[in-house]
Design a binder for these strands. Structure first.
Lengths: 365, 365
DNA sequence: TTGAAAGCGCTAACAA
DNA sequence: TTGTTAGCGCTTTCAA
């Protein structure tokens, strides 16, 4: 039975994607297949996909049943094109951090972000901003190419230029970690200042009174904030600020070792130390033990926890604990607010810190 | 001047996306805009985007110039729909690892993958397989929803069920880390067996002769392989295998401590130890030092490096170094082979290990 | 409450 | 070497 075929020059497409494999037939249903099988139009099916209330319960249920039967999943590419949004969000990563001690931190932030993003049925894209593969910036590739609806980036990656480019496009983005720049930015950070204060107050509660503070470079915003918190803590505890108790250096183990040695040579040496870095604090412990002194009895040590080393140290280190997963969650939530309302006001958010007590401040005398 | 308007009921779309912001006008050019501006058809522009050789140089250059002028970036959503591929690849992550010591490892693998994926102009998606947000498996959401062209997943996530589902769809995927399952799978792993052997041979070269091996559970494939390598190494070095020198336990610091104490109580105690885990080896060091013995002079220690702790230990640990970035790179390359040729043969790939000598085996006597 | 049909921006078959 | 045009699988306006 031959009939008049409709004019169709374009035959590269199959009507529905049928892959025949040995005995099995795997078929990917389209919205049309669902509509046909349910005896409705594609617009009805579309309305059901999108939870449009203008559909009778009867129809809805019938169509949902068919969807299940056909194992139907809406084609994300078609949906993206039609909606003019990619249904993805991007987490910018910093290749420089890969080998660094920041990296466990990142992974947890990522997990927090991922949780929120998938709850909203979007995908999370990872992109390394330092990738110089592309002649142009990867940013334009992502944004102008409509690959993503928003970007979350670490403060270590933030440059004025980047911020300006993003703002120029009015493109939704959020920074995690307080950025060190003048441009207005939405960001989420751990409350490092609070952490510094808590460290002091914890030490005071444990009976320490001459509290030193050694940090990595105070060119870093987070070290500056921790330092401010240290000063807040001293003030609130009625302790004097002593310049000779504050040292600044690198944050390697050796830096901690050397700085601690300087403190130990003081006439009136401190009986407690706050370190802004847990690697650094390993050197601090070593310097103290080298002098034949005990942690926590002679000297208490509190560290910030940017590396899960606190538990492994000897003795285990009391830390200012930082909820990095929450940092990710809040960054993502902030981004979605921005995506939904691009004109919303600038916002910043600080996540509370908490003292996690371990042996290094548990005095027995 | 009113004319006869073409029949067009659908007016929700703008012709070209013009966003007017204060004084600036940001315009997103489409392929049509480029075609018009260059005085060619959209197919010509499309051919240029796709490096089709059937275009004269003259035309190509003219169009490329226009593209640059208009700041044109092809719309990825339209391209994806038309090509029937999402231009993305997915890295499955395991939320269980987030807080674990595997996590720096993951981050580096991710970086290796990311490098390859972006070189090919695709995006990398991160998806947590343990996300139970979706009633159905996230796998079907990704695959049937056409969100991604291939998946890379850690062996810790591999289940027979998952493999079967992926194979059923004939969906391209690669596992990193040798999986412990019967289904045929393409995978890339570090050559743990070689690493075990190298550890023994290194110790022998350093003059150690009674070499013990303590590991985490040998239910884990990687521990099994390291153990096999240990035996290979003994054999090649002409050393006897002594059952009492092989212990298996957890891989916490305390496990290492306890197992080492067992070894130290032997009549003829070993003069060297290979640990499959660097955290565990911290406990090993402590046990040795507790007995008043020295590392490396009395006992040499070699550890596998799944955590960048080797440098921080006291003394710094000699490790079997594992190129995890390369693991990522090779996983991604293998995946792309599979995507390009889904019928290609099963493949596995092993990445060479290397001894990274530090103090814990540098004998001075 | 539902359906018809145009349109999202690109690709490629076919014709010229 | 280039242009014309249908089609990718959705969404949504408009009409019924």
């Amino acid at each position: 039975m031959r009939g008049i075929l409709p004019h169709n020059k374009c035959n590269r497409y199959h009507k529905s994607c049928i892959i025949k494999i040995s005995e099995e037939v795997i078929e990917l249903a389209s919205i049309k297949d669902v509509a046909n099988a349910a005896g409705v139009s594609t617009s009805t099916v579309s309305r059901i996909i999108n939870d449009n209330p203008a559909i009778s319960n009867e129809t809805r249920e019938r169509v949902l049943k068919v969807m299940k039967e056909l194992n139907y999943v809406p084609n994300s590419m078609a949906r993206a094109l039609s909606n003019q949004r990619a249904f993805t969000v991007t987490l910018a990563i910093n290749a420089d951090d890969v080998k660094s001690f920041n990296n466990p931190f990142f992974y947890e932030v990522m997990h927090g972000i991922e949780t929120v993003v998938y709850q909203r049925d979007l995908c999370l894209i990872i992109a390394n901003m330092r990738t110089m593969i592309r002649k142009e910036s990867i940013l334009s590739w992502l944004i102008n190419g409509k690959r993503t609806q928003g970007i979350i980036l670490p403060s270590s990656l933030v440059t004025e230029k980047m911020i300006k480019e993003l703002n120029k496009h009015h493109f939704p983005f959020v920074v995690f970690g307080e950025p060190d720049c003048l441009e207005p930015v939405d960001w989420v950070d751990v409350n490092n200042r609070q952490g510094g204060q808590q460290a002091v107050e914890h030490l005071v509660r444990q009976g320490y009174g001459r509290i030193a503070f050694i940090s990595g470079s105070r060119k870093e915003v987070f070290n500056r904030n921790r330092y401010k918190g240290y000063r807040d803590g001293l003030e609130r505890s009625g302790l004097d600020y002593r310049e000779e108790y504050v040292l600044e250096g690198g944050n390697a183990k050796t830096d901690g070792f050397e700085m601690m040695n300087v403190l130990l040579k003081l006439n009136e040496r401190p009986d407690a130390v706050i370190c802004t870095d847990s690697i650094m604090s390993l050197g601090v412990l070593k310097a103290i033990q080298n002098m034949g002194m005990s942690v926590p009895d002679d000297i208490g040590v509190v560290s910030f926890d940017n590396f899960p080393v606190a538990d492994l140290a000897d003795p285990p280190l009391t830390t200012v604990d930082v909820d990095v997963f929450e940092l990710g969650v809040q960054s993502a939530n902030m981004l979605f607010k921005l995506i939904e309302n691009p004109l919303s006001r600038q916002q910043q958010s600080l996540i509370a810190t908490q003292i996690q007590m371990r042996e290094s401040t548990r005095r027995t005398v």
